[in-house]
Simulated scan of single mutants.
Amino acid sequence: MRRRAALSFLAACTLSACAHEMTPSAMPGMAWSLHQVEGEGAKLAYGQPYTDNVVLMMSCAPGSGTVLVSANAPAGARPELTLASGSRSARYRAEIGPSMGEGAVVEASAPASDAVLRRFADSGELAVAVNGRSTPVPGDPAKARQFLATCAG
């Protein structure tokens, strides 16, 4: 009887995991990477190295003073993205990018001098929320500071 109950519970958990909407999530093996490519600007991304599996990407034209923040989102997501670092948080009006199979991309602009981004550069703490579901991502203050210094206008 216990075995049948345990198997039923496991099956229910597996099915509910498959039915969940796609949301950003940090997984083992993910890390921050910082790149600056001529013509593309600076990019600070959190994801699996050498893959397209990216949870969060920030990009900017050097000296522009503006950062474009992009995150994975479930299909039908509201055009809103929230960033939080320590006691600071800000909600940004966003645009929904092209669909990626079951999900989409949410993109928002923020000033490079934004209080949340400055706090992220100081502490390394950052969480991104789409549709009210928050995902903390481990920080790399050195890369964040270097990225924001490149973006500053």
Rank of each mutant, 00 (worst) to 15 (best):
111 P>F: 10
84 A>H: 05
91 R>K: 10
69 V>D: 04
79 P>N: 12
95 E>L: 10
68 L>I: 13
108 A>N: 05
97 G>S: 08
78 R>F: 09
74 P>I: 00
110 A>I: 08
92 Y>V: 03
104 A>W: 00
108 A>P: 05
88 R>E: 14
66 T>H: 10
90 A>D: 12
101 G>W: 02
69 V>N: 06
85 S>P: 03
70 S>A: 14
105 V>W: 10
110 A>C: 09
81 L>E: 07
111 P>D: 15
73 A>H: 01
69 V>G: 07
92 Y>D: 08
87 S>Q: 13
107 E>V: 13
107 E>T: 14
85 S>N: 05
77 A>K: 00
73 A>I: 01
68 L>S: 15
71 A>S: 15
65 G>H: 05
82 T>N: 07
107 E>G: 11
86 G>C: 05
90 A>K: 15
104 A>M: 09
88 R>P: 03
78 R>W: 07
99 S>Y: 04
71 A>F: 02
90 A>E: 14
88 R>C: 07
82 T>P: 01
102 E>M: 13
92 Y>Q: 07
104 A>Q: 08
66 T>V: 15
102 E>Q: 08
104 A>I: 00
79 P>L: 06
69 V>I: 15
100 M>Y: 02
102 E>G: 05
84 A>I: 05
66 T>S: 13
69 V>L: 11
68 L>E: 14
72 N>C: 12
99 S>V: 13
102 E>C: 06
92 Y>M: 10
95 E>Q: 11
109 S>L: 14
110 A>G: 10
98 P>N: 10
73 A>L: 05
76 G>H: 01
71 A>I: 02
71 A>V: 03
103 G>Y: 00
90 A>Q: 15
80 E>H: 10
83 L>H: 01
85 S>H: 09
68 L>H: 13
81 L>K: 07
82 T>G: 03
108 A>V: 06
98 P>L: 09
78 R>A: 14
91 R>I: 05
94 A>S: 10
98 P>I: 04
76 G>V: 02
73 A>C: 11
80 E>F: 10
67 V>S: 08
82 T>Q: 12
